[in-house]
Design a protein around this nucleic acid. Sequence first.
RNA 1: GGUUGUAUAGCUCAAUUGGAUAGAGCAUCUGACUACGAAUCAGAAGGUUUAAGGUUCGACUCCUUAUACGACCA
Length: 462
Amino acid sequence: MRNNFLGYSVAEILKATGATVTKANLVNDRGIHICKSMIAYQRFGAGETPESAGIKGDHLAGKYYVLFEKHYREEIKQLEAEGVATDIAKKQASLMLEAQQMLQQWEAGDEEVMALWHRMNGWVYEGFNETYRNIGVDFDKFYYESGTYLLGKERVEEGLQKGVFFKKENGSVWVDLQAEGLDEKLLLRADGTSVYITQDLGTAELKYKDFYYDSSIYVIADEQNYHMQVLQATLKKLGKPYAAAIHHLSYGMVDLPSGKMKSREGTVVDADELVKEVEDAAKEATLAKGKIEGLSEEELQQLFHTLGLGALKYYLLKVDPKKRMLFNPEESVQLTGDTGPFIQYSYARISKIRRDAEATGVVDLTDFAQLTELHSTEAELIQDLGRYAEIVTEAARALSPAVVAQYAFDVAKNYNRFYTEVPILKEIDPLKKAFRVALSAKTAETIKVSLGLLGIDVPDRM
RNA sequence: GGUUGUAUAGCUCAAUUGGAUAGAGCAUCUGACUACGAAUCAGAAGGUUUAAGGUUCGACUCCUUAUACGACCA
């Protein structure tokens, strides 16, 4: 989720600076991990489907992945008990052998394997799409590893011909990046199957041919820092013009208070469940406040969704991307303090003022030259609002939504102070009153746009 | 072993890129609602910026070394 939110937000920020942005999603739809899930499904699945099991397709595939790892570990333990050394047991376990065999069958286009692959991938995509819709993230273009790894193999071939790659006795292909301060890197296995980076070479080329970008930003966790350096250096060796245009927006992994999340062991926080939890927290708080009479059931659901997602997105985006962050489930559900709903609250508050202002016929002025004195909170707020353009520029330069998040919080905070210290609709002087209403409106607009850059919606009431 | 990231208040994070008294939120304590919306506001308390050196008129920020935690490569 940090990945999705970051990518979405950075795209919005760059668009705000006038850039043309295409959001691409690279789908990891092939490889040993997929085969593991498929093997486990063949063995233990008993024909289960998302419909029959009543769970989302991506969760179902994930379940079998975890199941594979579980049985795999058991098998290793068993072999060890029989006196087989650990590293040999890992290689000899029947599950692993089957998975590797399946990968080869897959690359050979085996019909049965392909059928199962299509079927299970279909479930996964459906599940992903549902989640993307739910969290308000979208993409302009999808790339699939299965569609790019062959192109990657061609690039490897090209590198061999150009003499920038080399072949070892066993037939595996490598690139020597020691001059770049990196190591030798495997590009193609001895058996001819591709490795992770192979498809990246293909994907990079495909992306470039599709869009001829000036800059291609990869939003990937920092555990791939080395991998990205290798990719860029390898493309440079191939003399690709787009090698220099690649940027890695590297972000720190998200830890749980209980430690690192591991998909293998199933110790992950599920995105769908998490969204539900924050929505529930928002619901409880909203109902307790009792400010939302007259909203339909549907509008209420929408509101809880807006607030819940606001809390979650803000929580994940307010931290500098490059920092490893701690995900505290209790804090992520918080609605007070330095949170999304705090800022949304300021917006809703202003919305009420604007409704009342309209109802009571406050004049809508734009010329305040006659206004001679400003309250200190007004001056501060105005100054803050004026920083918007500068903030967007800075956020785009640093590729950091955290800059925008911090700014939105500052604006909301300054507005709240202004609000408590200065009368707005209670002001008697019509000029001052009109000015303060206009200032409020401008603040609301700034909040809306700023949060919009983070992918967060604002409610008129909450 | 090599490369690399991080270290700031009890906790989670800021600090306009080397500038004035290091700021917020949470938690703790005190105060403000017969209301322009208290999901708020005002205030108190909380700091040898991991450690030791160095550069500089000036260092959280740059350099060196060490320590801790993490990631990756072998």
